[in-house]
Every structure is written in C-alpha cells, then in structure tokens.
Amino acid sequence: LVRYRTISKIPQITLNFVDLKGDPFLASPTSDREIIAPKIKERTHNVTEKVTQVLSLGADVLPEYKLQAPRIHRWTILHYSPFKAVWDWLILLLVIYTAVFTPYSAAFLLKETEEGPPATECGYACQPLAVVDLIVDIMFIVDILINFRTTYVNANEEVVSHPGRIAVHYFKGWFLIDMVAAIPFDLLIFGSGSEELIGLLKTARLLRLVRVARKLDRYSEYGAAVLFLLMCTFALIAHWLACIWYAIGNMEQPHMDSRIGWLHNLGDQIGKPYNSSGLGGPSIKDKYVTALYFTFSSLTSVGFGNVSPNTNSEKIFSICVMLIGSLMYASIFGNVSAIIQRLYSGTARYHTQMLRVREFIRFHQIPNPLRQRLEEYFQHAWSYTNGIDMNAVLKGFPECLQADICLHLNRSLLQHCKPFRGATKGCLRALAMKFKTTHAPPGDTLVHAGDLLTALYFISRGSIEILRGDVVVAILGKNDIFGEPLNLYARPGKSNGDVRALTYCDLHKIHR
C-alpha cells in the first residue's frame, strides 16, 4: 500500500512540481520508500527539464536528425535550378540546329562534286560548318556529364541527390541515346576521305529529338503553341524528305545512260545542264529549293507536275512521300480545326451564355430598361472574369491554397485601402477568403433606401454616388468604403439613402 501511494504521487509531482519531503505519510521509514524516492526525484528532475525545454521552444527539443539540413553532394545540380533551365534551352537550340543542318550536310555532301578544292585539302579548321559541328559534339558530351550530376524525382516524389543513384537512373534511361548522339564521328573518321560515311553517321544526332519531343509535351495545353509546333514538325519532315529526294537524284545521276532524272530535267529547265562528264548542272541553292518544293507539294497532295519522278527509285520514294503525307494530314492537320476551336472556345461560351440571357429575357418578357441593365451587367461581368467562376475553380483546392490565391487576387485593395494598413498577414488572409466580388454598370442602383444592410462594401474600381431623395450626399471612388460596420450592432440596419454607380464599378463586399 505504501508503495502504491508513493507511485500514485508521481503525476502530481510531474505537473505541480511538489516535493515529496513535505508529505508526512511518505516520510515513514520503510525500505521500499527509501529505494523508490531517489528514482522519483530523478524522474521528476528529468520531466521538469523536458517541460522547461518545451515551454522555452528551444531548438534542442527536436531530434538531432530533424535539425540537420538535407545534404547535397558537391557538384550536384538541382533539376529545378536556373542554371539547369538555361542549359536545357541551350541544348534545345543545338538539337534544332542539328535537326536542320545534319540531314542537309549528309545529303548535299554525298558524292558532291561542286567546283573547288576537296575538304581534305583545305583542312578541318577552315570549314565553318565542321567547326560548328565540333562545338555541338562537345556541348552534347558536356550535357552527358551534367546529367550524371543532376537530381531527379523518383516514384515516391522524392528528390534524389545521391550521385550513385543518379548515375544508375541515367544509365537506365537516356544515357545510350545521348551517348550515340554525342559521338564525334568527324574526329574519329577525319582524314579518311569518307565524307559520305561521316554525313550518314552524323544523322545519329537526330535521336535527341525524342527527348525534345517529350520536353515539349508540357506545352500541349496551349493551343497556339501546339499549332506552332505542328507546323514546325511538318516543315521539318518536309526538309528531311527534300534532303533524301536530292540524295536519290544525286546518286543516280552519274550512272544513268539517259538523262531522265529530276536533276537533269531541272538543269535543262533553268539552262544549267550537266555536261557529258557529269559536272556542271544547277547550283546547290536551286537543287535544295526545288527538292523542298517537290516534297511540300507531295505532302499537301497538290502535285503540280513541273517536278516529277521519272526513275524507279524516284517513283518509289514519291509513293512513300504520299503515304507520309496522308498520315500527316490525319495526325496534324486533322487537329488544326480542334485547336482553332479551342482557341476561340471563350468567344463561343460568351455567345452561348448571351443567347441564354436573351432567351430568358424573351421568355419572361423583361421590360426594355431592365433588359438593357441585365445585358450590360452580363457584358461587364464577362469582360472582368472571362466567364470563369472563381468560386467553382477554387473549390477543388485546399483552404490554405485558397487563402493564398484570394490574398493575391485582392492584393491591390488590401495594400491601398486604409482600414487594412497594419493588419497582420493572417488577418488579411482571413479577410480575403470572405470577400465576394460584384460588378455594376453605370446607372445601376446597388442599394435602395430602406434596404437591409448586411454587408460592408469596398470599391475596387469606378465611382458611385450616394443620394437622399434627389440630393447627392457624397461621391465615392476607388478604395472608399460604404455599408454597415460589421458586428457593431446586434441587428442589421437599414439604408438611409440610395447608392448608384456612376461608372463601371468593381466592388468587394463582406457579409455579416
């Protein structure tokens, strides 16, 4: 019993810090008490220290592992850092350059016999395009090294910054494609005289377009951006097909006994025919423009016929181009109408809503002055909100995010209106959640004399007048207030005048 009563005193000691020596009952000389009392004092002292730490809000209350900052290894790049964003855009520009100039170089340097010394005699450094290609190869190699040090988000939505895990993730992902696209074939085969082989191998750079397509997928929600990307894709495919079309004609031209190829026909049409040795002929500019003209006309199913396939190889390629053109029509131009419709969806919704308003007016036989006010209010409210119901949009977000959005939407009023000066951010967040926005066209009466005042109004834009009878008592403008002081009276009061809008007004109100 003594032991039980001794232990039962522990909660009292913990909360009230009572010393055991003052209790005459606990001072009985028993061996059990002498053993338990020192333990009680020690526990009391420890609990006292913990309570003191909690009340003082000291940093040592938290466990040590929670006080440590997340460790980022040296030379690790955050995937959302500004440097990584700028670097990704730079790589994107280099990939676009590669997609345009690599097929052009591979096709127009394929057994090209233009006048001038061969590239091997001039030297590697004197070729501007080769120098640019070398810079692109170096940048792609540097990009691989950067990807080995860039964080990523795993399946659990955690940012991984450990170098080993980053390397394994990159090896399992895009490393092989990036490595093949970054191989400097110019340096590996330079001086061997195989410019045709170098041009063909350099087309491996186009593998990076797969990554670019995935990154550009984030802009699919913007109709104008999608339309622009589709047109660029169409032009890029036409450019690639033009390079292939020229390569076919250029390879067949020296081996044909009869002059029936499209390059021969082009030379005869523009007065620059090929001679018996295969030299001469149109310039590279004429060849490229004509090839691009043929691919565009074939892809769009126009086909004027002034550039036509004559050999079997050219006919087979033309059939493939027609098939590609039909697929592009289905996948690209078939979506253009939907994209344009999405661009004008706001206008369509406006006309639909206006039609419903006019049908309501016609069905209920609203008189002319009231009908005009109804239409003007709808037009003004639509121009202010673009038909978007803010309350319906915010309803799907958590309250903390709703408060931040409301604070942002009402920031101008909260910053410049005098009653809100000096208020804490928590108070402003709470008030912003209570605001209701209303609009009024010129001549609209917001409050009639004798109406119950259940709200306090803040003028965000425009001006109003307060009338008693036919006498203008006051004219209020931006950041002015009218209405009933909230919670100042037990019952809502009545208006002693009319409140009429002089201009288009936007008002925020808080109800009782």
Rank of each mutant, 00 (worst) to 15 (best):
S297N: 01
K425M: 10
F333H: 06
L90K: 01
D137E: 15
I237W: 01
F363W: 08
L230F: 12
L197D: 03
S105W: 11
K172Q: 11
R429H: 01
R421W: 03
R259G: 15
F378T: 13
G280D: 03
V393Q: 03
A348I: 06
N310T: 15
E121F: 07
P419C: 12
S297M: 03
D217S: 05
D286C: 01
H351G: 03
H408V: 03
L230S: 05
V131W: 02
L188G: 11
L207P: 12
G261D: 03
G267P: 01
T300C: 15
A225S: 06
L266Q: 01
G278T: 01
V136K: 07
L401I: 12
P398C: 03
C417M: 13
E115I: 15
L355W: 09
G325K: 01
F228L: 04
H380D: 15
H448C: 07
R421H: 08
V289S: 01
Q253A: 14
Y329S: 08
L67G: 07
A106C: 01
P70K: 07
A381R: 15
I135W: 03
M433I: 09
A167L: 05
I405Q: 01
R358E: 03
M322N: 03
A291M: 01
G325I: 01
V393Y: 03
I339F: 03
L292E: 01
L92S: 04
I77K: 01
M390Q: 09
Y350D: 01
Y104T: 01
W87T: 01
V136Q: 01
L94P: 07
P419N: 06
L200T: 05
I166R: 01
L394I: 08
C417L: 14
P398V: 02
C122T: 01
Y170K: 01
I248L: 03
G271K: 04
Y377I: 01
L374P: 03
D444F: 07
I189N: 13
T203P: 01
D133K: 01
D257R: 08
P118K: 15
S258K: 15
A99L: 01
F333N: 04
C232I: 04
L109I: 03
K111G: 14
N275K: 04
Y170D: 01
N335S: 03
Y350M: 04
S283C: 01
N310P: 01
H439A: 06
P367K: 13
L355I: 07
A430Q: 11
P163M: 05
R362C: 02
Y246A: 01
Q341F: 04
E157V: 13
M251G: 01
L266R: 01
A238P: 01
A449S: 14
A381S: 10
L188P: 08
G199P: 04
C400N: 10
R208L: 04
T438E: 08
L187I: 14
F171C: 14
S161D: 14
P398F: 01
P117C: 04
W382P: 03
C126L: 02
R74G: 12
A99C: 01
C417K: 05
T233V: 12
L241D: 01
Q68K: 15
G443A: 03
S258M: 11
H351N: 05
T445N: 04
R371Q: 11
G191K: 13
L263T: 01
L67W: 13
A204S: 05
A348D: 03
A130F: 01
Y246N: 01
T352G: 10
I284R: 05
K285C: 08
G199S: 13
T445G: 02
I135R: 01
H416A: 08
S220P: 05
K395Q: 08
T295V: 13
E221L: 01
D88A: 01
G173W: 03
W174S: 05
S276N: 04
V160T: 06
I324S: 03
H439Y: 01
H380C: 10
A291H: 01
C122P: 01
V307K: 01
D186L: 09
N312T: 01
L176S: 11
F108L: 01
L129T: 06
A204Q: 01
C126Y: 01
P369R: 03
I361W: 03
D404W: 01
I244Y: 01
G199H: 12
A238H: 01
H264L: 01
Y377F: 05
I146A: 04
S161K: 05
K418F: 05
G116S: 07
Q269S: 05
M390L: 08
S297R: 01
P254I: 10
P117Q: 11
E158M: 09
M390D: 05
L401W: 01
E158R: 11
L197Y: 10
H351W: 15
D286H: 01
V447H: 01
V321N: 01
T76L: 13
Y170V: 01
A338K: 08
I388F: 15
A432E: 03
I141Y: 01
R218I: 05
I96A: 07
E375A: 03
Y170E: 01
C417G: 10
W245V: 01
T76P: 01
E375T: 10
C427E: 04
M328T: 05
P441I: 10
I183R: 01
L241W: 01
L446Y: 02
E196A: 14
V212E: 03
A107R: 01
W89P: 01
I237Q: 01
G123P: 05
N154C: 09
D186H: 14
L409M: 08
I244D: 01
A348V: 13
V302K: 01
N391Q: 14
T76S: 04
F296Y: 04
P441R: 06
P282G: 01
I138C: 03
A167Y: 01
F228R: 01
F83C: 12
S297Q: 01
L266K: 04
D257N: 07
Q269M: 04
A338L: 13
S194D: 09
E112R: 14
A449E: 10
V95N: 01
V180R: 01
T98Y: 01
K172A: 04
E114C: 04
Y377M: 05
H162T: 10
W75V: 04
V142E: 01
R429W: 01
P442H: 01
G396H: 06
E115D: 05
I135Q: 01
A440R: 07
F378Y: 11
T300A: 04
G281V: 01
S298R: 03
D268T: 11
R205F: 01
L229N: 03
A225F: 05
Q353H: 10
I91R: 01
I91T: 06
V86F: 12
L241E: 01
R342D: 04
L431W: 03
K202H: 03
F140L: 01
L94Q: 15
G267S: 01
L216N: 04
E114I: 09
R211Y: 01
L266F: 01
D444N: 10
E221C: 08
D133E: 15
A348M: 13
L241C: 05
P163C: 05
D404T: 01
R429A: 05
Q415T: 08
L206I: 05
G280Y: 01
